[in-house]
Simulated assay, not measured.
Amino acid sequence: MATLPPAHQPPGPRGHGREIHTLDEFDEAVARPGSLAGHRVQSVDLTDRTFALLSAVSTEAVFLGCPMQPEAAAKVRADGALVFPPVPDLPFDPYRAALYSPGELFDGVTDSGYEATPDALAHAWFGRTRADGDIFASMLRSIHDDAVSDALDELLDGARVVGVMGGHAMGRGTDAYAGATRLGRSLARAGLTVATGGGPGAMEAANLGAYLAPLPDEALAEALTLLADVPSFEPSVTDWARAAFAVRARLPHGGDSVGIPTWFYGHEPPNAFASRIGKYFANATREDGLLARCTAGVVFLPGAAGTVQEIFDNATPNYYGSRGDPAPMVLVDRAHWTERLPAWPLLEALAGDRPMAARIELVDSIDEAPDALARLTKG
């Protein structure tokens, strides 16, 4: 099954060896000839590295949100470095070097409830600033989202990523939820990295399935039983999240997957089963980036407006070939996609005789999706 690299990893080809994300990487860099010249130091606390900064060469370096002593900041600026200081009183780090973890976003949910968590506080800040026209707040949101995109690119570089899209209304304890969990588990066991919109319902189920992939099959029934007592995040996100963390505590050492949610839909919290979370303020950036990273295809479970939008957001680059060869698209539930929300006939008509026609398939049940995806990939 697919295993993601550590959350903090040495800068790879995308950063051309110049990005520094940890104190260990900083210490290694200052020990080399040329020192910090041309490097990008991202969200590393350098308060205790004053001597190193005073001694280092920092020509054309960039420091993004790195706390440092005033004399150290003056020295690197005198060398010609750009220094973007930390921003006080924010519930998030706009310069962050890594994706979020569930524990980070839900910190405090057990003792104080969801409203006290970093996730809820970031959404509250977004609600206060999104409509006030303040260019500073807008800039901070953009910097944050770009940092998240950079971290996603580094994490998923070379990975075979398959997306699972579906609505947030799918309740725990239902057959549909159990099926989506089996789907995520099957895809992860096939060596694919599962990526979802990172929210509740079908998204949580697919991330849960990937989490369960390395565990014995009996873990699936145990997890579903534990979660069924709190079927939805409404009316209480706190109870919903606590149930998820109880499963994680009961079944530790689960597998990896990625969730890519947004604060734009504030009523929809992230789920706790994606091992890495790339959460965005800008939903358009999040939607396009999620689908663009699903290089091994996308499975679309029954959903409403959001899922319909994702189907055709994904179909457009497949139609024009703007991302290269069309990526597989599997729609699950014939009645849903031909009768209730007839997206399939339109998708099929759009495909016509284009190359994407060989990369789309409609299946009746969720358990057929992995085989359909494999067929489209080989074809």
Rank of each mutant, 00 (worst) to 15 (best):
F84A: 11
H123P: 00
P102S: 08
P370E: 03
S138Y: 13
L82F: 08
V76P: 15
V330L: 12
M1R: 08
T377G: 02
G201H: 01
R130G: 00
I311N: 04
T181W: 03
A304D: 06
A151C: 12
M68R: 14
T262V: 12
H123Q: 14
A213S: 12
T50D: 04
V363G: 03
V87Y: 02
L347S: 02
V30P: 00
E287G: 05
G303L: 06
P86F: 10
V247C: 07
A284D: 10
V308G: 06
R32C: 09
F106K: 01
G324H: 00
S186V: 06
V332A: 05
L251Q: 08
P270L: 02
D229F: 00
Q69L: 15
P70R: 06
L346Q: 07
L4V: 14
A205V: 14
C66L: 02
P261I: 11
V44Q: 00
K75Y: 06
I366Q: 09
A327H: 04
G297Y: 04
A246G: 02
L82K: 13
S232C: 05
A74Y: 00
F264W: 10
P328S: 06
F63L: 05
I143M: 12
V308L: 15
L331H: 05
R130K: 14
W240L: 00
M203G: 07
V258W: 09
P231G: 02
A228R: 07
A274C: 08
G171R: 15
A81D: 02
